[in-house]
Design a protein around this nucleic acid. Structure first.
Lengths: 244, 244
DNA sequence: CGTGCCAGGTGCCGT
DNA sequence: ACGGCACTTGGCACG
């Protein structure tokens, strides 16, 4: 059941929040001061902000800009409502790591309680989808390439695809769904080095991504690694052998 | 000026949104279908969700769980409002990369326009703070350590602190504010390798963080790198020389 | 604008 | 729980 309070008293607000926080998404507009202390520390000067509290414990204080809340506590946090002399205090506690958000609400402008879906959204076009496609179409990587393992676990991390080329040489494939940077090259190099040390023979290393920064490409090349460029939407894929 | 519409008609809603989207944060509760297409693709079945639109172009569709929106477009996106036969369509366009969020609102339950602060929040306790402290207290890293450069730029990335130990040996210091994983070790190793190749002499490499995963520690040790553990709040710092 | 990298990252899926 | 890693990562600072 939707319900709204406009300029409620602190008592009304406290009752409302306590009654509905467990089942509905709450939106609160008020003049407030907010402080956060935990892994880091932050605070908001007194002003008008928008609080969103979800039934799963998510607590967010939004300003007029940006996607991320100014201050927040993640799902699983516990909410405490406390009436003070001239204010309503909302306390959100996260247990591990210990983090605390305190909002002292002064002038309550609006509170709404909203019943919304609790769905798990499905996203298509992730790295996992790209790996799936490559496993189903191993010939794309190169003629005669065969997949040995997917998500192959090593002591230094999981290898996206471990395979073998047409001449029998082991190939480590690392896939990135967006532009590859030095980190991605580093990751591939780490796997290659590990396999080399383990098997006594150096495998080939191939980075697959829709794009790569120029310095990352240089870093890749100077380490004897290879690059395959794919189109973002997996159509009209092509390879880059020379970058200059 | 705050304003609220409860169960408005599509025409009312369209007028309201157009009038206020540029200056206020809008909150819309409705039964809707939402689709996203861009770098990836996602869609929401028809249901009740909460839309938050900020004056900077941020467009978010929230469900009842999690901190992140189910579907969103970031700041800078442009909003289009369009009256359809039996629905109100909200279109959010991001230009680069090209991304599109379309929400078809069927039963409008509530729209509110809220004037909130546009502040930039200041957070204390970041990695930068930790690096600052180490630069001011170089003796903490070890007796006789001196700082040569901070944020030293190389072809393979920026080194947090480049210094020299009491015996004149170059030291690469990489700082992490939270638990270090294989990536962090990899990063340090990359810098060390780079300096080694550049100068013809291998520098020492020290990772500084409040924690390190055991496999990352193993990876670090097998590469001849060193670790210093610091307390999260910079008090009672201590070093780990042996981890077993 | 691209490149690099931190983030109170968050979320997901393992062991 | 801890660990490893992707994410429509977002956000920032610097070239």
């Amino acid at each position: 059941m939707e319900n709204y309070l406009i300029k409620p008293s602190n008592e009304e607000a406290a009752r409302f929040i306590k009654a509905r926080a467990a089942s509905s998404v709450l939106l609160i507009k008020a003049v407030m001061r907010v402080d956060y202390e935990g892994r880091a520390k932050a605070g908001l000067e007194a002003g008008s902000y928008l609080i969103m509290i979800k039934p799963d414990g998510t607590f967010m204080v939004h300003g007029s800009k940006k996607e991320k809340p100014l201050i927040w506590n993640p799902p699983g946090s516990r909410l405490y409502v406390e009436l003070q002399d001239n204010a309503l205090a909302l306390l959100s506690i996260r247990s591990s790591p210990r983090e605390r958000v305190i909002a002292i609400l002064h002038e309550l402008e609006f509170i709404g309680s909203f019943d919304v879906e609790h769905v798990d959204n499905k996203v298509v076009g992730t790295e996992s989808d790209l790996v799936d496609w490559l496993v189903s179409n191993p010939g794309f990587i190169e003629q005669g390439f065969t997949v040995l393992e997917r998500e192959f676990e090593t002591a230094v991390g999981k290898i996206d695809i471990l395979g073998r080329d047409s001449r029998g040489r082991i190939v480590v494939v690392e896939v990135k769904r967006s532009q590859a940077g030095p980190d991605a090259v580093n990751q591939l190099k780490r796997y290659v080095d590990h396999i080399a040390q383990k098997r006594g023979e150096r495998p080939r290393g191939i980075l697959v991504s829709p794009d790569i920064s120029s310095s990352a490409y240089f870093y890749l090349k100077t380490n004897g690694l290879e690059y395959i460029k794919v189109n973002r939407n997996l159509t009209s894929l092509r390879k880059i052998t020379d970058y200059s």
